[in-house]
Nucleic acid binder design. Structure first.
Ligand SMILES: [Mn+2]
Ligand SMILES: [Mn+2]
Ligand SMILES: [Mn+2]
Ligand SMILES: [Mn+2]
Lengths: 195, 195
DNA sequence: ATTATAATTTAGACTAATCTAAAATAATCA
DNA sequence: TGATTATTTTAGATTAGTCTAAATTATAAT
C-alpha cells in the first residue's frame, strides 16, 4: 500500500504514516521502500492475521453471547482486539464453538491463520425471480447497519428479487412475505449466497 | 495515600507518582496536597469502583466461561479492565448471572457501585476440631496460587483444623479425607467462612 | 532547638505517537 | 523534455508517561 492510502484509511496524516512505516520496517513487519510504498512481510502478515482473528472472535462473543446489537460490536471489538494472549483467544474460540464467520459475515482465521472461503455474490446482482440467502455486508458503518435494521434485513434472511429498476438500480425484494424497497447503493453492499 | 506508598505498589518511582498525582488532581479525581498525600474525590472513587467492577467481572468470565485457571486470570483481566464501555460491562454482568464474588473471593461492585459484604475469617484462626469453607485468598500472586493448586486447596473446599503448631504456626488440616500440611504464612492468606 | 534522615518535589531528559509546514522526489502533461 | 502537480519525506514541535539526579520540605533524634 502507499503512504497516502494508509493515511486516508486511518485518518492520520501522511507524515505520521511515514514515521510509523519506518518503525514497522525496523521491526521487520513490513518491507518499506521510501517513495515506493510498503508490503507486509510474512511475519507482519501473521501479526495482522492474528489481529483479525481476535477482532472477529470478539465480535461473535459480543453479538452471540452478550446480545449486543451488531451495529455496536465493531467499536468495542476495536479495543478488545488489542489484548494480547493466545491462551485467551484460543479458549474464547473454543467457548464459541470455533465459529467460521463473524456477525457481519467476515471470515474468521483459525488458530493456524487459515480462512474459510465460500461462494458469495451481491444482492444487486440477483436476477428477478431468484432467491438468495443474506450472508454478509460489505460496509459496517453504523448508519448502514441501522438502515438495514429498520428494514428488517439481516444475516440469515432469505430474499427474492421482484424487480430491478434499470434507471437507478434500485430494487424491490421480497422478504418475510413483505416487499421491501432497496437503493442500488445498499443492494451493492449486501452479500448473498444464491439459492 | 502517600506518594511513596503508591510508588511501591505500582513499581514506579516517586517522581512519576508526583507527576501523575498532579494530573489526576487537575481532572478532579483526587484531592492532592503537595507533601501531604492524596485522597480520592467522590468522582475518583466512582471511577475506581467501576475499574474494580470491570476487573472482577472479567475474572469471572475468564475462569467460569473460558475455563482459564485461576492463577492466569489476573494478568489478562489487568488488560481487559481498561476497555471502557458500560454497555459491554452491564451485558457481561447479566450474561454471568450478576456474580457477587470473583474467582479469588473478592466482592464485585454492582452497577450502582455497591459491594456485597460477608463474614470471613482466616484459616489460621480456625481452632482445632472446627470446620471452615474456603471463600477467598488474600494474595493473588502466581506462586501462592500454584502452591495452593498443588495441595488441592481452592475456593469451595471444606476444611477442618487438625492441629496448630504453637512454635511456627504451621497447621495440619483435613480436606477431602486427606491430611494436609500448611505453613502459618499460607494459612494466614486464606479466607474462610466458619461452619 | 538544631541537626540528621526520610519523604517528596522539581529539573531536566527520553521515547512513542502524533501533528503542521517545508523540502524533496516522483508522476503527469503540454 | 521541461514545467506543473501530486505524493512522500523531513524538520521541528507537542503531549503523555516515564526516568535519574538534585533540591526542597517534613519528620525524627539528639
Ligand atoms: Mn469489524
Ligand atoms: Mn483497534
Ligand atoms: Mn484481581
Ligand atoms: Mn490494568
Amino acid at each position: 500500500m502507499t503512504t497516502n492510502e494508509i493515511a486516508a484509511l486511518l485518518l492520520n496524516t501522511p507524515a505520521s504514516v511515514t514515521d510509523m512505516l519506518k518503525k514497522l520496517s525496523a521491526k521487520e513487519l513490513i518491507n518499506y521502500q521510501p517513495y515506493k510504498g510498503a508490503r507486509l512481510t510474512e511475519q507482519g502478515y501473521k501479526h495482522a492475521t492474528f489481529l483479525v482473528r481476535k477482532h472477529r472472535l470478539w465480535k461473535v462473543f459480543l453479538y452471540q453471547s452478550l446480545n449486543i446489537p451488531w451495529e455496536a460490536v465493531q467499536e468495542i471489538a476495536e479495543e478488545l482486539e488489542h489484548i494480547n494472549s493466545e491462551l485467551l483467544i484460543d479458549h474464547l474460540d473454543s467457548f464459541l464453538g470455533f465459529p467460521k464467520f463473524d456477525p457481519h459475515g467476515d471470515p474468521i482465521p483459525n488458530a493456524q491463520g487459515k480462512y474459510t472461503l465460500r461462494a458469495q455474490s451481491l444482492l444487486s446482482d440477483l436476477s428477478p425471480g431468484k432467491q438468495g440467502l443474506i450472508i454478509g455486508v460489505k460496509d459496517q458503518q453504523l448508519s448502514f447497519l441501522q438502515y438495514l435494521d429498520e428494514k428488517g434485513i439481516g444475516i440469515g434472511k432469505t430474499v427474492t428479487t421482484i424487480k430491478h429498476d434499470p434507471y437507478d438500480q434500485s430494487m424491490i425484494i421480497s422478504m418475510d412475505q413483505k416487499e421491501i424497497n432497496l437503493s442500488g447503493k445498499a443492494a451493492g453492499l449486501i452479500f448473498i449466497k444464491s439459492l
